[in-house]
């Protein structure tokens, strides 16, 4: 029998739950298909199919989803609303499922809901999805727990790697961005490559333990209610005295970053900060000029 193909777009929450999803569905006996890294084809698919006012990350996500819908039986698109009363997410994630439903009415979309205030947890959602493919509850629960363990292991490997990086004597730059932007090829690949070429050690905001980051974000503000922003800003306060500079990467027009990043720049005047806003028309030359002068600032600051 041919295996059912389930597609996971390499965008948005893939960078947070990717390992979990992959091992879970493979444990259920399905074939998981990942979309390739963002390329020009995927980007133009996204730009052509959604209105121009959406942020670049969303356009990329739509591109990946449409690309996969042609080659897969199912698509996994979670809907995320909040992780508790004080931990909301961008309203963009509230509507991803319904928006894609309009675009891809033919292909079947698998969805589950994370809304802690209404007792909708990821665990329950994924198990409900699993019942669609197998009737064996032990298999489902076992593969979920195994997947969860694997995701945690993957996260802790990254975390330890980052700890080792901090021991180095190089100049260190903290990259602060949403987890879905940091590893994306189109958005930040050029920036990270350029900095590494100039022998700068890169520290990433999404590899810090999330609970620690949340505690440290209290130094910034106690009314901030976006979970992902808390993790980003918490990392700045955690690493502040171990780094030489910070780069904010946001995708134009990001609603949350427009407020939080600017407030962070106002509040942290003692370290060099570069605020980069990336859109689909960005050229490598314009980035290079900015990065070059930023590196000069860091090196100059240390010479004094």
């Amino acid at each position: 029998m041919k295996k059912i193909k389930i597609g996971i777009p390499r965008a948005f929450h893939y960078y947070r739950y990717g390992v979990l999803w992959k091992t879970y569905f493979e444990g259920l006996g399905l074939k998981v298909v990942l979309s390739p890294e963002t390329n020009q084809e995927i980007l133009s698919l996204g730009i052509n199919n959604i209105i121009d006012e959406c942020c670049l990350s969303y356009k990329i996500f739509i591109g990946h989803a449409i690309y996969l819908s042609k080659i897969c039986d199912y698509l996994l698109i979670p809907r995320i609303c909040d992780y508790g009363k004080k931990d909301k997410v961008c309203t963009r994630f509230n509507g991803t499922y319904d928006n894609l439903n309009q675009l891809l009415s033919k292909s079947q979309i698998l969805d589950y809901n994370i809304e802690y205030t209404k007792h909708k947890y990821q665990f329950l959602g994924l198990i409900k999805l699993g019942l669609k493919f197998t009737k064996n509850p032990i298999k489902i629960i076992y593969s979920y727990l195994y997947a969860l363990k694997k995701q945690k292991k993957y996260d802790s490997i990254n975390e330890n790697e980052q700890k080792n990086k901090l021991q180095k004597n190089n100049k260190k730059v903290l990259i602060i961005s949403h987890f879905y932007n940091i590893k994306d090829k189109f958005i930040s690949k050029y920036i990270t490559d350029y900095l590494e070429k100039n022998s700068i050690t890169l520290i990433y905001s999404n590899y810090l333990d999330r609970k620690t980051a949340k505690v440290f974000s209290e130094y910034f503000s106690n009314t901030l209610y976006w979970k992902y922003s808390k993790e980003m800003i918490g990392s700045l306060y955690y690493y502040k005295y171990q780094i030489d500079g910070t780069i904010f990467i946001s995708t134009y027009p990001c609603g949350i970053d427009s407020l939080v990043n600017n407030l962070a720049i106002y509040k942290n005047k003692d370290i060099p900060i570069l605020n980069l806003s990336i859109d689909e028309n960005i050229t490598e030359v314009s980035l290079e000029t900015k990065l070059e002068s930023f590196i000069d600032i860091i090196k100059g600051a240390k010479n004094e």
């Binding site: 959604i50 209105i51 006012e53 959406c54 961008c90 309203t91 963009r92 509230n94 509507g95 319904d98 928006n99 309009q102 675009l103 027009p253 609603g255 427009s258």
Partner: peptide, 12 residues
């Protein structure tokens, strides 16, 4: 410009 919830509503 850039109002996220309303942009979510536009395709629908």
């Amino acid at each position: 410009y850039g109002c996220v919830p309303e942009i979510n509503a536009i395709p629908i």
